[in-house]
């Protein structure tokens, strides 16, 4: 049981980082499916940074920086140039695929897997002595603790601050926001960059934190799942948290069931997270909280 919970949390951390990060940009009215590519880039640069400097933390910083660059490209094309956001997301994913494979072959040999220093878990004294939960929750790495804090932080910024209100308003009616003096483009830029930073951290957590290595295409759809978690979570911080946990349970279950000798083939368990995502999207019929101007570029009049 404990083992299962540990694996669920391992799955949940990158999802939480990524979808809580992207929640703001989604609320501001941009659809970013380039998350997959951002996470992949973050995963590579996290490993590269740790490989060069020996420190996974500097690796994570480099990962986040690389994703800032990628998000800047995305933001420029979708906000300034007003290109189709979904197709631009695909372009970012394609670019990230090509970039990571190429750089991986140049810097890290493709013949053997290069292991780098990963995040070390830092137990929190006393709290980690609580039976069952203690070991699961309070014997984690720094990004994982950060993810816990992020849940509260996101909720706070989203619903209690002026900034959160502005972000929500921009997704609802950008023209009105413009008239009252909110800079729509700047807000969308900054939320996209913030989402990119979080996706980069999530990617670094997956590569340096979990496997201590990079492999081509290692994100395998988790960026899309993070995006789906925002939709399924009805665009609210707590909803996103809940849906991330549901997806994480699905993924944890997948590994658990793979290990057990079930009559159903191993490959069907591999499909489980994707099926859960589809079912979850279908179950959520009323998306009352989705921003009205989602995916629509704003033309300053």
């Amino acid at each position: 049981m404990e083992e299962f919970l540990v694996s669920v949390f391992k799955m949940a951390v990158p999802l939480l980082l990524c979808s809580l990060g992207t929640l703001f940009s989604e609320k501001a009215g941009t659809v970013n499916i380039g998350l997959e590519g951002s996470m992949l880039t973050g995963a590579l640069f996290g490993v590269l940074g740790s490989y060069w400097t020996g420190s996974p933390y500097i690796g994570a910083l480099i990962a986040m920086t690389s994703c800032v660059v990628l998000s800047l490209v995305f933001a420029f094309f979708t906000v300034t140039i007003r290109a189709n956001q979904i197709v631009m997301g695909v372009a970012i994913n394609t670019i990230a695929t090509g970039l990571t494979i190429s750089l991986n072959r140049i810097f890290l040999t493709s013949a053997s897997v290069v292991k780098v220093n990963g995040f070390k878990s830092i137990p929190i004294p006393f709290l980690n002595k609580i039976p069952v939960i203690g070991e699961v929750l309070f014997d984690q790495t720094v990004p994982a603790y950060f993810a816990y804090i992020l849940v509260f932080l996101t909720w706070f910024v989203y619903s209690k601050t002026d900034l959160g209100l502005r972000i929500r308003a921009v997704g609802e009616y950008p023209a009105a926001c413009d008239t009252v003096g909110i800079n729509v483009a700047r807000l969308r830029y900054s939320t996209l960059l913030y989402g990119g930073i979080m996706a980069g951290l999530a990617g670094a957590y997956i590569s340096t934190g979990q496997l201590s290595a990079f492999s081509e295409g290692m994100i395998s759809g988790r960026g899309f799942t993070a995006y789906a978690a925002v939709i399924f979570g009805n665009f609210t911080p707590l909803g996103v948290f809940r849906s991330c946990m549901i997806f994480a349970v699905g993924m944890g279950l997948q590994y658990r069931l793979q290990a057990m000798d079930t009559p159903v083939s191993y490959y069907f368990w591999m499909m489980l997270p994707y099926i859960i995502t589809i079912v979850a999207l279908c179950m959520y019929r009323k998306r009352s909280n989705a921003p009205k101007y989602s995916g629509i570029p704003y033309v300053k009049g």
Binding site: A91, I95, G98, I101
Partner: peptide, 10 residues
């Protein structure tokens, strides 16, 4: 080539 494709789409 993927990089190239992505740039073209963009």
């Amino acid at each position: 080539v993927f990089l190239f494709q992505g740039i073209i789409i963009a």
